[in-house]
Design a protein around this nucleic acid. Structure first.
Lengths: 349, 349
DNA sequence: GATTAGCACTCGATGATAAAGAGTGCTAAC
DNA sequence: GTTAGCACTCTTTATCATCGAGTGCTAATC
């Protein structure tokens, strides 16, 4: 069905269209890509490719445009054929830049998005670590002054969360310590769900004298653990979309940018996919959301330990420089995993 | 120079232009605004107003467009004349929505930006609290496990910051407590600058046995206090700009959105102004930055105690619904100040 | 002296028409 | 199977006439 020459023609068309963003004619291919056949032959092949669904015609007298199906074929072959020859020098440069700028995890993610957008020239997306079901590692109550107590929570991954709350009457420091110890003893290693369940079962029944303060603290613990699990998304280089002729149309640009502006949708977009695999590519109509049905989304994951905890990627017109983007993202996947390990991972000494 | 009727004509033109975004002709004014004079008279007045710099002509046979100078006059009179009749019902509605959604300060600011953009239909901007020179209120070291210590800092305003760091060898809990107490004793109430200075003066000389751990902690304290002072900006409703006909031009839209995307510039924009005053308005060419020289920026401040600590505002075409925006922002200024007081302020019981 | 009706004039916007150009698809020859 | 050649299609671009909103001036009017 798809003989060797057809594939070559198709690739030539795709390459040309990625480069120029203009419908590709038979003459262009026969002249600029060395296939050794005349434009008439190319015309015949193109006609076949169109029939097979790999090419579209904007109108009779225009050239051809690759379909989503064509990109899919192209990308699959790209991913299969391509050896992962990572440019270690570049990788380490990026790593250095990332580490220097990012002491906090959120900063790391944000900076990654920024750098990716800069080096690929596409809009980048990134989602903060997913630490679903995080387990409590440490809890401590600290008196700030007579009327304020600070609750500090640390989860397994080393993410910390604090809340200050007010109390009517002064609670002696040693009593707070007792409470801290007690809570640590009872709740350490549990997820929020488990803590809730334990409470329903009345693990605190034994101590009546602390009840009043515990009643105040438990909701805080809950909220904080919830907060830790909360995700954030970042986008960078949104206006890069204006550089692509397909977004000369104001309405298209608007709908794209509106989509990117909607954090809820972005989170959904990045999480709905699996968190598996190395590089994931969604092309055009394969996307669920209407506003990006003529975009391609390329994402990669980053890990903490052996858990995949987040995603970072690039979005742009289906006519995307897949090769370049895939390579850039691979660099980041490795780098971020390494950096996260350094920032959050358990010390392995 | 500017007699009463000229002002009336000018206001009519401004109102019409704000509404329609189209050059205003003399006939429109004489028909739709009840000034009791013919279009010819209006024409004469318009000619005078143009000479005085209040009106511009796109070309000979178009109507007139208000100049920045005209908006400035209009706005100044608006601010002077307008009584602050705050819609208390609406104010409290908004307050309720804000309080429910925002437990964290940053969330409060973000939500405010979102709501403001929604009710005004313009792009909103907000900057996180400026707690310049924040003073240390409390510091505590908490052992997480054998190799990790959590440093918790609380500043005067009740903002908390944590960092986990690793130690080679286990430090006994009581020793950490001693260190905490010592640091609290020495550093409480000081700003970062003062802490640095104190260290240069060698306040820690007396205790040699703690030197090793202190050397590790001091940079963390510094970084954390710096971090607390760090500002963040938020923008919401960026794509609203597409709704305005003056941004039908792709390049204009791009340059506007690029500007808004650049956090550095936004911070500068919001901080370069004074932090004084109720409502501040910068019109068109009064703006320093080129990309927004045909925008107006309206901001208001919010306070903590008697210190102005942040700004929130709206940006849009100079043809802006000043009245509506000013009223909306006033509501927010009061609400946010009240909410911040509740979240962070000292308990006054 | 201010106001107004009247009218010539300006200039962008709109739409129709023509010409140019890129590309296809078919046919017939190689 | 490949290719040259050519009629045909459809968009793009340029040109030109027309339309209409609006001005600015003049002369008449209040």
């Amino acid at each position: 069905m798809l003989d060797d020459r057809k594939v070559k023609v198709l690739h030539a068309i795709i390459n040309s269209y990625i480069l120029k963003a203009e419908p590709v004619g038979s003459r262009t291919i026969s002249k600029q890509y060395d296939l050794g056949v005349s434009s008439a032959t190319i015309r015949n092949e193109m006609s076949d490719l169109e029939e097979l669904g790999y090419l579209n015609k904007p109108h009779t007298s225009a050239g051809r445009i690759p379909s989503d199906k064509a990109y899919r074929l192209y990308v699959d072959q790209l991913l299969k054929a391509e050896k992962l020859k990572m440019d270690m020098k570049k990788k380490n440069e990026i790593k250095k830049a990332l580490v220097e700028e990012s002491q906090e995890i959120d900063q790391l993610i944000q900076n990654s998005a920024k750098i990716i957008s800069a080096i690929t020239s596409y809009t980048s997306l990134a989602i903060s670590p997913q630490l679903k079901e995080s387990r409590l590692k440490h809890i401590q109550l600290i008196p700030i002054d007579e009327a304020e107590i600070l609750v500090v929570l640390v989860n397994e991954s080393g993410i910390v969360k604090n809340t200050i709350f007010r109390v009517e009457q002064n609670i002696p420091e040693d009593q707070l310590l007792t409470i801290s110890n007690f809570l640590n003893h009872k709740l350490k290693g549990f997820t929020m769900d488990e803590i809730n369940q334990a409470m329903d079962e009345g693990i605190f029944r034994e101590i009546h004298d602390l009840k009043k303060i515990l009643d105040k603290i438990i909701p805080i613990i809950n909220k904080s653990l919830e907060d830790i699990d909360n995700v954030d998304v970042y986008a960078d280089g949104v206006t890069k979309i204006f550089n692509f002729p397909e977004y000369r149309d104001l309405n298209k640009a608007k709908s794209f940018i509106s989509f990117i502006e909607d954090k809820e949708l972005l989170i959904d977009l990045l999480l709905n996919d699996t968190l598996e695999g190395d590089i994931e590519i969604t092309i055009g109509d394969e996307n669920i959301y209407d506003p990006i049905k003529d975009c391609s989304l390329i994402t990669t994951t980053y890990r903490l330990g052996d858990m995949t905890i987040g995603k970072i990627g690039v979005i742009g017109p289906t006519r995307m420089e897949y090769f370049k983007v895939i390579n850039a993202l691979r660099l980041f996947s490795v780098n971020m995993t390494e950096i996260l390990d350094m920032l959050l991972g358990n010390p392995r000494v």
